[in-house]
Design a protein around this nucleic acid. Structure first.
Lengths: 183, 183
DNA sequence: TGGGTCATGTAACCTGTTACATGATTAG
DNA sequence: CTAATCATGTAACAGGTTACATGACCCA
């Protein structure tokens, strides 16, 4: 149940509409969690029923009305409970379709797999490039927060991203080399 | 739709029952994909309806009968189609609850987060220890295959695991250091 | 005049999780 | 005597994906 908690975390920074949450999600949490717009709206509904949020309609003219969500004390309590949960094990599970394909790649030509790995590497390098700008994005956003401490944690997840992508590039290069030797 | 394809991939090595697939899954694909036993049985049913598999009941006495699955030509075609799909982007998406919690950790005490990171590191080191034995496991299993090439790919995914866990350990250490400085 | 942004969703479907059920055999 | 192993699942629910719908406004 992490999408709900991600949304709680974002709403804890300030009130937002579903539309704004969707965008905020995509610029911040997207590296380690992906969510569809439609799912966000559905989860917000469910969370309001659970009284983790309350909403307020803000009329607009010419545009659809905005439905602004605010986190409740119950929601904040839930967020903290989730953050403080001691049991790590489930949180470490990772699903990686790319690796699953690699596992079974004896079924396709070596040259095709090498090609896939090269595209993989290129993609990782592109993502790294994009990530090199997160530093300034973080300090831009961080200015609006009362709790400046957040920036340290945001930066640490960005660092994870950089370490991860560099590791993937190295692994791809090593694997390509191994495959070129046997082909 | 990766569980189905993982099961196809395993059945491509040889006929198995749901029970055996469950165990095979947990010793091979578990690092990058996790599946519940009940889900495996359900997916096998669905796959048989799609004619990717056929099954055969093998009566036993004293034990429940075995339901042995065999991949069909249609199933093999589907496996290859999935493996050859050129579009990488979706395959690179990764969901990581641990990082999402880290992102919002300004809400909990720094000391608590440092403690969590230490347990994270310990867990990674434990997993690394466990992974150091995969080399021999791979060559044991590989002996039974006609297609020995598989071992190279299995080994490459295991290498990814080792690189990944080492990277996580380094990141945890760096992050602990950063947090200790600000606290 | 065509595409992007703003802003809301619903419906159908697929996939993943949790809890439960059965019952004999075997190893410690 | 107890726990694990063998071997099958079903039911209910939660979460994720895909496709579709509406409609004004703004910019090139």
């Amino acid at each position: 149940m992490s999408l709900k908690h991600g949304l709680l975390g974002l709403l804890n920074y300030g009130d937002m509409t579903g539309y704004e949450l969707d965008k905020a999600f995509k610029v911040s949490l997207n590296f380690f969690w992906q969510a569809q717009t439609s799912q966000i709206y559905r989860e917000l509904n469910a969370m309001e029923k659970q009284a983790w949020l309350i909403s307020q309609i803000i009329p607009q003219t010419g545009k659809p009305n905005r439905k602004l969500y605010k986190i409740t004390d119950l929601g904040r309590a839930e967020l903290k409970k989730w953050l403080s949960k001691k049991d790590l094990e489930e949180d470490l599970n990772v699903k990686n379709v790319f690796l699953m394909k690699m596992f079974f790649s004896a079924e396709v030509n070596v040259s095709e797999t090498i090609d896939t790995l090269k595209r993989y590497k290129a993609q990782c390098l592109g993502d790294l490039q994009a990530m090199s700008q997160t530093g300034s994005v973080i300090s831009d956003y961080g200015q609006n927060l009362e709790n400046k401490k957040s920036m340290v944690y945001w930066a640490s997840t960005a660092t994870f991203g950089v370490y991860y992508l560099n590791m993937c590039v190295k692994w791809a290069e090593d694997t390509i080399k191994t495959l070129e030797e046997i082909s």
